[in-house]
Design a protein around this nucleic acid. Structure first.
Length: 748
DNA sequence: ACACTGTGAGTTTTT
DNA sequence: CTCACAGTGT
């Protein structure tokens, strides 16, 4: 027996050995699908399949990284020859080699959503469209939807005037991208389909290369992704897709469960294997999950079971108000932390991001460490996008100076170059059909001399930096850019909480870049099978590779291991249910389990499929828990400024009541409604004191304290909330938010 | 050119 | 309630 079949259950072993022909693995939550996939790949290699001929596609970078690592543990260094990547990264790789067939340059850049919006805004302005009537976001969503369905501007259905507008915006938007040799995330998929369809020899090459194809989370594929897989698998037909139709929660983003459900139709000889044994949760939790999901129609009904023991009942709590629910969760977390659990074992899951705030505030006040997953992703932060824009502009000025990057940072830090100057420059550049950067010249007669001087100064600054890139390492060059451009000084001078956090983020960026140069780049070249050694590359070449790599990253890697060992990571985790997919936690609190919130109001209105998707979301949430599951809701809560009263979620009634242990104090209706609502006023002084103590830096402020600051002068503390103090300085500086621990703040 | 103030909108977001 | 953005005032 192959070593890769050890400790597998029968179904898993079957999935691993069914290497030839189409295979659909319906893998329930926690059924060990990643393990099956990695062992299947290892099994293939052990059977003599060349790693070069294996492909494994995931959706997230994290999943790809994990699969790569686990595969390497099984088969060693040759794992590097296997393409294990996300859909998007795979497409970039294919397109870099072949995109010239489609009229783009192989050094195409990838545009992110913020830049997409600004292009759409420009387009709308040029078409005299009112952004209030139809916001840029709307057009972007429609364009994305069209691209996912492989539709071009001409393919759009024209049922009303808006559709016509969408078509026009789409057309111009696309033209601008092509002009700038840029593609968006959807283009990566769309262009790959086009390439494979239009270039038979390219298709043949990849069909021959990828003799064994694996797709993870197949239920989340959209139409374009479906087509890519289908095209690639068409010759050898050794296609293994893994997924769970019950965990399809991204239909609103174009994911089509139909893809996994019709797999049998696409491949009549498909083998289908269901993985129902769960290795994650206690049976009670799975029973609750099974109860919920059986209310959805399912083509492949699954019933999860585990041999990890029955476990405790699901703990239910019905609060009368939002903050009471929060206090209950905190109380339970405290109790657990005094018993056999750590803060890091506990996770709070909610339907909408806005629910996090109450928890955040209360946790902070209670001095319980926590982290919020999600929110603004690292690479979307202003300072990160700014430094990337600087680097991109610097690298691009030789060939084709990048307008989008230019516009982003030409006045960041403030150089006195305002909207009027930029508009005039744009007009001139448009006529000359040149880039903005190249259009700047001393003899530009449409601008005043001050504006010209400032622009020229900026131009020289960038040229100067561009001329010395190759004298530095990546890390040192980034350092240099931050210094020379005045970017760092701008942040230092600002001295607000935000600006200091930005400096930290830029430091983090530098270390990401250094890690890339030292560790990732050599691997990358090895993966490509390139003859080149990392040492042979110039800094500009390395930077270009870094920028490409970054565009596909949405998050920084996990915190480094030292921190975890020191217990720094012993924090309660807060996140949306969507963000929790694929993760597991010993203790899970699902909060806001109410009609109107979960299922969310809009889904209740829509009914049908929308409710089914909410139900799948509930299923995902429940199956995240390993040992303890708490579900809570509130009769009344503050939402968007006013109170709303909600009934308990219908999903609760779908679960057999024997699986619950009701924890809420039995209150009669009258008692609850007569009881004074917990007072909302926060005791002002203690808040600041507690927070300051929390930081342990000895700075304790409360409102009214007189302080002095080296650059802002004298001020008075207005409020102290958490680690932040708001201080009123003179009229010149106004109210600033600073960190309580900031050494520059001195009491007078 | 920039800071301030008022208005409007507020599900989820792997790349 | 609170955040983001657009429009106004200096």
């Amino acid at each position: 027996m192959s070593e890769f079949l050890e400790n597998m259950n029968e179904r898993q072993a079957e999935a691993i050995q069914a290497t030839e022909g189409p295979l659909l693995v319906m893998a329930g939550a926690g059924s060990g699908k990643t393990r099956v996939l990695t062992h299947r790949i290892a099994y293939l290699v052990s059977k003599g399949v060349n790693p070069y001929n294996i492909l494994a596609i995931t959706f997230t970078n994290k999943a790809a990284a994990e699969m790569k690592e686990r595969t390497e543990q099984l088969v060693g260094r040759q794992a590097y020859r296997i393409w294990i990547s996300t859909f998007h990264a795979m497409c970039v790789r294919i397109l870099r080699q072949n995109i010239e067939h489609l009229g783009y340059g192989s050094d195409f850049g990838i545009i992110d959503d913020a830049d997409q919006i600004s292009v759409i805004k420009d387009v709308m302005r040029s078409l005299n469209m009112d952004p209030k009537l139809r916001p840029p976001k709307y057009f972007l969503a429609r364009i994305s939807e069209a691209k996912n369905k492989l539709q071009f501007p001409g393919d759009l259905k024209l049922e009303n005037l808006t559709d016509k507008d969408v078509g026009e915006v789409y057309e111009r938007y696309q033209a601008i991208l092509v002009q700038n040799n840029r593609v968006d995330f959807d283009d990566l998929l769309l262009l790959t389909v086009r390439l494979l369809r239009e270039q038979p020899e390219v298709l043949a090459f990849y069909q021959d290369k990828f003799q064994y194809i694996h797709v993870d989370e197949y239920q989340d594929t959209n139409h374009a992704q479906y087509n890519i897989v289908k095209l690639l698998a068409d010759k050898h037909r050794n296609i293994c897709v893994v997924g769970d139709s019950d965990q399809s929660i991204y239909s609103w983003r174009g994911a089509d469960v139909g893809n996994i459900l019709s797999f049998e139709k696409d491949y009549a000889d498909a083998k289908i294997i269901k993985l129902e044994q769960n290795y994650r949760s206690k049976q009670m939790i799975l029973d609750a999950a099974n109860d919920v999901i059986k209310h959805n129609y399912s083509m492949y009904e699954k019933k999860l079971f585990s041999d990890l023991g029955e476990g405790s009942k699901v703990r239910l709590y019905n609060a009368s108000a939002g903050d009471e629910e929060v206090r209950h969760v905190l109380r339970e977390i405290k109790k657990l932390s005094e018993d056999k659990y750590r803060f890091g074992d506990c996770t709070i899951l909610y339907r909408t991001n806005s629910q996090s705030r109450l928890f955040e505030q209360t946790l902070r006040m209670a001095n319980i460490p926590f982290r919020i997953v999600g929110g603004m992703s690292y690479f979307k932060r202003k300072e990160i996008k700014d430094i990337i824009a600087y680097l991109r502009l610097i690298l691009s000025i030789d060939m084709n100076p990048d307008d989008l990057s230019f516009l982003r940072i030409v006045n960041e830090p403030k150089r006195g170059i305002g909207a009027t100057s930029i508009e005039r420059l744009r007009g001139e550049a448009g006529m000359a059909e040149a880039s903005l950067f190249d259009t700047i010249s001393e003899t530009l007669d449409i601008l005043g001399s001050t504006a010209i001087n400032r622009l020229m100064h900026f131009k020289r600054l960038i040229q100067e930096l561009a001329s010395v890139v190759d004298d530095y390492t990546i890390g040192d060059f980034i350092e240099r850019v931050l210094d020379i451009t005045g970017y760092r000084n701008m942040l230092i001078a600002e001295e607000t909480i935000e600006s200091l956090a930005r400096i930290d983020n830029l430091e983090e960026f530098k270390s990401v870049a250094i890690t890339f140069e030292k560790d990732i780049l050599p691997d990358l070249l090895e993966e490509e099978g390139s003859e080149q050694k990392a040492g042979d590359l110039t800094t500009s070449e390395k930077l270009a590779l870094l920028l490409n790599d970054l565009m596909l990253q949405t998050d920084v890697k996990e915190e480094n291991e030292e921190e975890v060992e020191e217990g720094e990571d012993n924090k309660v985790t807060l996140m949306t249910i969507h963000a929790a997919k694929g993760l597991e936690f010993p203790v899970v609190f699902i909060v806001g389990f109410e009609e109107g919130l979960f299922p969310i109001y809009s889904a209740v209105e829509e009914g049908g499929d929308a409710i089914d998707e909410e139900r799948r979301l509930a299923y995902v949430a429940i199956t995240r828990a390993k040992e303890l599951l708490y579900i809570s809701n509130s009769r009344k809560r503050m939402h968007n400024g006013n109170y709303m009263t909600n009934k308990p979620s219908r999903f609760l009634t779908e679960i057999d009541e024997n699986r619950f242990e009701v924890r809420a104090p039995k209150r009669s209706f009258t008692l609850a409604s007569n009881a004074p609502l917990p007072s909302k006023q926060k005791p002002k002084k203690p808040v600041g004191v507690v927070a300051a103590k929390n930081l342990g830096k000895g700075q304790i402020f409360s409102s009214g304290d007189k302080i002095t600051h080296p650059s802002f002068g004298d001020g008075v503390v207005v409020s102290a909330d958490g680690p932040t103090v708001s201080i009123a300085f003179g009229a010149e500086h106004g109210i600033k938010k600073l960190m309580a621990s900031h050494p520059a703040i001195k009491k007078r």
